[in-house]
Write a protein that binds this DNA or RNA. Structure first.
Lengths: 199, 199
DNA sequence: CGTACTTTTGAATCGCATCAAATCTGGTGG
DNA sequence: CCACCAGATTTGATGCGATTCAAAAGTACG
């Protein structure tokens, strides 16, 4: 991914190391850098009326908050949910380099991909049954019906807009009904899900 | 909006007139044109597993499916929900003109705006109470807490991911509780909502 | 005037959120 | 190595609110 960036830009990259639970930026502040997550995990969140936190997105790798490139201020909070390593690019330089080597095309494709992801997410959240959301997630985020989860089930529940209790229960019910297979892998908190019903 | 397009592109514009309920494009087909809705209404939808239709977006004015510019195929269906007039631009020419006069910057800003809208929509759908979704919509889509609805309440319900019965009931409850004001305007099926509680 | 659609209200049902509590887990420090 | 702790996982019971089905009243339009 980064190899598609103009060299001028790559040379201005600064590496940022952050521990788990440290903030990266907060809503309302002016973006100075565009971040690329190399390793770890960053969550984009927002606070509701009563202070409840809403998880907009969990990112394990790639650019964060791509829409902040031309934004006056961030529209959500970002914090590291795991110890993370990031590359930071000065926003100003980034904007200036967009015209270089047709780099804008790369960026437009990135934004388009994000829009598609968000449309999927929206469609998923519009489903009001827990099992429908799970299956929809397998079909859209998974590869060939198989999804490797990053992090805990509890974190996944937040992304799906479900309480973790409901997610646990529904997963077990689907498993019992042979609609999916749950494979817990060794030390890592990863699950592998496999659909058993046709598309 | 259209005045920001390069002249070369404007000259290739074709006008399209469609009646209500006519399809504009369907999921899976290859995009040949990029559409700008001048007048009327277009809905982007998707079909769920059991054939239920999910309304992803209702558009009254502006570009449709901006992400299709570099897409191999459409990722949702589009149809006119009202009699509409559109401008169609050949995709190929559009892509070629992006480099002209820094037009790509206009396009990137458009995509960024769409991403922000989708994030709002996602956050809204993650709220599980009808009144929270309504209020969130007023705060994000409205101007200064005032929102002019386009179309019927029933259509709005689909966008909010609620049954229309629940939306009607909750609107009346909020009105009775003085949390919002509903003003039905003459012939047009428009409502004006005004928040009465602080931000 | 009739038809199609929206708006409205009612009643029954179902599923999710919530609170609570127990168990399991990985990781830390003694 | 073991004790311990924080967090994830699991299970149970309860209540609320949204969906659904049904039906009536209102409204736009030809």
């Amino acid at each position: 991914m980064l190899d598609q960036l103009p060299n001028t830009l790559l040379q201005q990259r600064k590496t940022v190391q952050l521990e788990a639970n440290q903030p990266l930026f907060i809503q309302g502040t002016k973006p100075k850098f565009l971040y690329f997550l190399e390793e770890g995990e960053v969550q984009l969140t927002r606070c509701g009326q009563q202070g409840e936190t809403c998880t907009l997105q969990r990112i394990q790798q790639g650019f964060l908050a791509e829409a902040s490139l031309f934004a006056e201020h961030y529209h959500c909070d970002a914090h590291c949910s795991k110890k993370s390593r990031l590359s930071a690019f000065p926003i100003k330089a980034f904007r200036q380099q967009l015209g270089q080597d047709g780099f804008y095309e790369v960026w437009i494709q990135l934004l388009s991909k994000e829009i598609k992801r968000l449309r999927n997410q929206g469609q998923r959240l519009a489903l009001n049954s827990a099992s429908d959301r799970i299956i929809h997630c397998l079909q859209t985020e998974g590869e060939n019906g198989v999804l490797r989860l990053q992090g805990s089930i509890k974190e996944w529940a937040a992304e799906l807009g479900l309480s973790h209790e409901t997610l646990y229960r529904t997963l077990h019910r689907l498993q019992k009904q042979k609609q999916l297979e749950i494979v817990k892998q060794k030390t890592a908190t990863q699950l592998k899900l496999t659909m058993h019903c046709p598309t």
